[in-house]
Simulated assay, not measured.
Amino acid sequence: MTARILLLGGTGDALTIARTLGPAHVYSLAGLGRVPADLACTVRVGGFGGAEGLTRFLADEHIALVFDATHPYAAQISANASRACEAANVPYWALRRAPWQPQAGDNWRMVSGWAGVTEALAPFARPLFTLGREPLAHLDEVPESQHWTIRCLDAHPGHARARVIDARGPFTPEGERTLFTGARIDVVVSKNSGGAATEAKLAVAREMGLPVVMMRRPTLPDAQREFASAQAALEALAHYTQRSFNA
């Protein structure tokens, strides 16, 4: 019998992995963004109730392996998963995508948290936010001297000083140039997510001489096995499922 895998998702890499999982396995999403309808595995939407709730879920559903493919900034989810796996004596594996590294010509301004972002943006007029949904909670804080462009996965109303774009990567340099020029962007705000899908914004910022306000990554728990790419994870999971099926 195949040992059940719980895949914690929320990234494009997680969806790539989920598409290879059969009906015995569970793909868990927090509930933001679009829920895929073409997966063979079970899709679970919503939280678990912290580490304690996840520990119970692992026992009740007979989960044999947790694979964490959440966003690099979803630190609380990863912390809960690590604690739950330790309590339930279940292996904890994780996809730890390498962060981007500044290149020659980059002007990165490293910050921690929303307060650091707003302080760093004070000299600028037309920032592009690529932080996901977080800026939507601050639309009533847009300074009169600024106009925000916010790109995230979900449609959301903006207002006179904020435009919200719902779009999903991968993004191309050509598309980013068009956006930057049309919106008169003078600074980019980003998380250091790593990966190729959204890296074009950094290349275009470098090309156009624009600064990037970059949020530092949070500290994530160690996993028993860590993978730098979806392909490496897929190979390990395929070997794991085959081994457990033959056991």
Rank of each mutant, 00 (worst) to 15 (best):
G116P: 06
F67C: 06
L131N: 06
L234Y: 00
F245S: 13
H159N: 15
A196F: 00
A37N: 13
T241G: 00
R168V: 00
L202N: 03
D154Q: 15
A233R: 01
A160R: 14
G158C: 08
A87Y: 00
A125Q: 15
N246L: 15
G49Y: 13
L6F: 07
E119G: 07
D166C: 12
E207D: 11
A162M: 10
V204P: 02
C85T: 11
V188L: 15
A51E: 15
T55M: 08
A197C: 06
W100Q: 06
A40K: 13
L210C: 10
T178H: 12
A230W: 07
A14P: 00
F124K: 07
S193F: 09
R168L: 06
P221D: 10
T16Q: 10
A203H: 09
L39S: 12
I63W: 10
L54T: 05
R126Y: 02
P102Q: 04
G132M: 06
D60E: 15
V212S: 13
V212G: 10
A84E: 06
C152I: 04
G194L: 03
R177N: 13
I165K: 02
A75F: 09
G116C: 08
Q76N: 05
G10A: 11
S28C: 07
P218Q: 03
D68I: 05
T149L: 15
A155V: 11
A37E: 15
S190V: 13
A18H: 03
S112E: 14
S193K: 05
L58F: 11
Q101D: 00
P36H: 10
A81S: 09
E86K: 14
P135E: 07
R4N: 10
T181G: 00
W93Q: 04
D106E: 07
P36I: 02
A88P: 03
R4A: 15
R133K: 14
V26Y: 08
A196S: 08
P157R: 14
L136R: 08
T172G: 03
D222A: 14
P143K: 12
E176S: 07
W93K: 09
R126G: 08
V45A: 04
H71E: 00
P221S: 07
A24P: 02
T70W: 07
P102W: 02
L32G: 05
V43K: 12
R133T: 13
T55H: 11
T118P: 05
